[in-house]
Simulated assay, not measured.
Amino acid sequence: MFFFTERMKEMDKRQSAKKQSEANTGGALWPELTVPLSLADRLVRLSKGELTEIRTNLEIKGVSSLKKQDLALALVQHIPDALPGLLHKFDETRYQVMKQIAVRGGVSYTMMDDEQLSYFTSRGLLFAGLHNGKPAVAMPQEVLESFQRLNYSDYRECFKQNAEWIKFTHGLLYYYGHLSEEELLNLVERYAGTLGDEYEYHGVLEEAILFYMQIVPDSRGYHNRSLSNLKQVQQEQESRLSISLYPFTKNQLLEAGEPGFVDRTPMHKAFVDFIRRNYSISFENADALVTECVIYIRNGAMPSFVLQFIRQHMEIHDLELTRGFMSSIAALSNGTRQWFLKGYSPNELSAGSQPTAVLQQEQAKADVIDMKSRAKVGRNDPCPCGSGKKFKKCCAG
């Protein structure tokens, strides 16, 4: 676990350095691609550190002591041979990326996310550059030939199993925020039915972490990449011994495991509608703003902090509008599944919780929960918006 965490840190450093270098040079780092692309030609252009990363990612033994030039030549031989084994850790998504480039003769003008391109490049499989004057991604000829020799039917069931493991893992950490390694293994096995060899799952998970960049390994397990106060979430979860983890269904977790998933609760949608009623703003921008609010709430932000965040993006001119925002924030907070609460929303843990349909109708009357103490804010308590007034004289009015 420690070694893998160090790999993640090192990769983040290299990506930051690359982005800074691109900024300093106006992004002029695109080499010319000659297709068919020579693997040797690409590798000799890399630094010793980048070659070492490829060697480490592909678990190639016996070449670590070689000098840069010799290491590059050794990798030319090893990378095509390592491809069949690497595919056993893939899901259908990564296979299809390579297939689409392979069927185009080894070059594609469809660009992918920087992180995902970095994943393939750091395994010696794909390289970005300019081809015919346009940004492109190319597969070295040696890798292309190795890929074309593979039989998809030999991997179909493996891809399906790996995809399910990955989605369950992403879904669990989307809702719980953090899980110990033992908790994660037990839950994935419970939902997937079997994990087979534990080391096989870990191999699949490590590759998925580096490709999807949605979760992060830590000293005790794994956490959602959006979780910013890991220690506090761990302490809060451990202090709530009377609460078990929320029992999600398989379908809920598989849905939450999809890239870019957002749990758009009725309160989330109502907040988006409120913003659009009061501002000239697109649905996409309003939805993105509310989604950011949800991330802050899951990290334990007070309603006053969430309101301050919103004020950074839009002007709130009067008290009535402020009250409307605070009411929406309260409803969103109470209806959001929270990492502190092991996947429950405050509404679900409230003794007086009501059906979702009623909550939608009575959103303006929603109780405010103090996100620090997790207690209901009374009318005579200080208003969580930070005004210094009593709640009944401010946002509850």
Rank of each mutant, 00 (worst) to 15 (best):
C293W: 04
S180H: 06
A102V: 02
F3Q: 12
A396L: 14
M302E: 11
N132E: 15
A357P: 01
D367P: 10
K342A: 09
L73I: 08
L227Q: 07
K167W: 00
S244A: 09
L349P: 04
N334V: 13
N380S: 08
G300N: 06
Y246R: 15
L117A: 09
G124C: 07
E315W: 02
I316A: 08
M139C: 03
M371W: 03
A351V: 08
Q363L: 11
P31K: 12
E258I: 00
A256C: 03
Q360V: 12
R298N: 05
D287V: 00
M8F: 04
W30T: 12
T356Y: 06
S244N: 09
Y174H: 13
Y175E: 11
E183D: 15
S244W: 01
I295R: 13
F391N: 13
D114I: 07
K89E: 11
K19G: 10
N186V: 05
D218A: 05
L51M: 10
V358W: 15
R94S: 08
L126I: 13
P36H: 11
E92T: 10
D81E: 15
E181M: 14
L289K: 08
A208Y: 02
H202L: 10
L87I: 14
V262N: 13
R298S: 04
N278Q: 06
K392V: 03
G106L: 03
K99R: 04
K18Q: 15
K342R: 12
N224L: 00
S64R: 13
W30V: 07
E183T: 04
N224Y: 03
D41S: 11
V233G: 02
E292L: 00
S282V: 01
R374M: 15
I209D: 05
T121R: 14
L241C: 01
Y201G: 02
E198V: 07
G124L: 03
S373C: 10
K61F: 08
V216I: 12
I275V: 10
D263R: 05
S353P: 02
V63E: 12
R337M: 09
L130R: 14
N186H: 11
L341K: 05
R379L: 13
E348P: 00
S122V: 01
L210H: 01
G343V: 05
N162F: 01
